[in-house]
Design a binder for these strands. Structure first.
Lengths: 186, 186
DNA sequence: AGCGACATGTAAGCGGTTACATGATTCT
DNA sequence: AGAATCATGTAACCGCTTACATGTCGCT
């Protein structure tokens, strides 16, 4: 269960409420890990039951009390354990490739449309990654140069992925354009 | 639900049993989509209830009857619809990057170990992709040159991904090696 | 005697998504 | 007047994984 550990990771940087964690997920790690509120609240409760976090309730008037979660020693240990254990190979689940290989059953325009759509999307996310690298406020939580570097590298990873995919898509379209006759031509 | 559509895609290539589909998933699309038997049998039953496939029961002695599934017209239509609708952006869920960014909490060796481990795994899967491209028997189901090309492109996609990741990992390790002092040095 | 291929499934559980529910404050 | 922000959650559902259950045939 990576999500609970990611939460512990964020709480190690700064004690936070569920709401704030939601924003962190949408912001900083959003490109490679997402989480919804229900999930976050559920995991926070579970982590609390497991003794990995401690709640500090800060009453407010007119809105629900802020529940600020802090890492406990057990939580810190759980985080360290998770970091030490090796990650399995990231098996990616790519509905695009699935569609691509089966698109031979459909007219050629379908395949090309799929690729064109992919290119447009990749261009957009490439721009997003690039913009994110320019905005240094992303790294404000970083407690050291090294930590900031790691965050930057994670964004660069996404950027590299986009660029590789774009290069592949261009090659794919070119290769498909060269082979249209489908058995018979002029 | 991509899985049911992937099954329809395979059945369009060739009527098959659940068992055979399982092998197809493990083999040809295994690098970008996985499925377990329980899932496949369940989806086949669902597709049958939805009228998208038709079963032909072939009794055997000494072992369970083969249930050969065929696409119906409705199934073919469902496949075509799925192919025509655009795919959303592939949001990848990468536990490696998650661990990487939080590994600043741990000693530097942890981060480097993570990266080294990733490199080893990527090298292995790169070799696997490359080997798969060499083996033309992967494409035996292909009904045309174009179809074979699509399968080849799907493998090349994985290969490109591996190579981009490897390049990134090398850059990452170099960048991290240049920044060890953590605030104070000689 | 044991393993792998063939061939079917069920049951329990987990992680994730979507929809629902509540309600004040501040900005446009 | 309406939308966004802050702040908490519950319930239902869906897709996927893991473990369990059964049984023959052929190879080593």
């Amino acid at each position: 269960m990576s999500l609970q550990h990611a939460i512990l990771g964020f709480l190690d940087l700064e004690p936070s409420t569920g709401y704030t964690l939601d924003q962190r997920f949408a912001g900083s790690v959003g490109s490679f890990w997402t989480a919804t509120r229900s999930q976050i609240y559920r995991e926070l409760h579970a982590a609390e039951r497991a003794g990995r976090v401690r709640v500090e309730v800060v009453p407010q008037d007119g809105r629900p009390a802020r529940k600020v979660y802090h890492l406990t020693e057990a939580g810190r240990a759980a985080l360290a354990d998770w970091l030490a254990e090796p990650v399995g190979p990231a098996q990616l689940r790519d509905p695009f490739l699935l569609k691509l290989v089966f698109s031979a059953s459909a007219p050629p325009e379908v395949t090309d449309g799929l690729l064109a759509h992919l290119q447009a999307e990749l261009e957009a996310s490439r721009a997003e990654y690039a913009a994110r690298l320019e905005r240094p406020e992303i790294f404000t939580l970083a407690r050291s140069e090294r930590e900031a570097l790691l965050w930057r590298l994670s964004i660069e990873n996404g950027l590299a992925w986009c660029e590789a995919q774009l290069a592949w898509a261009a090659r794919a379209r070119a290769a498909l354009a060269e082979e249209p006759p489908e058995g018979g031509c002029a």
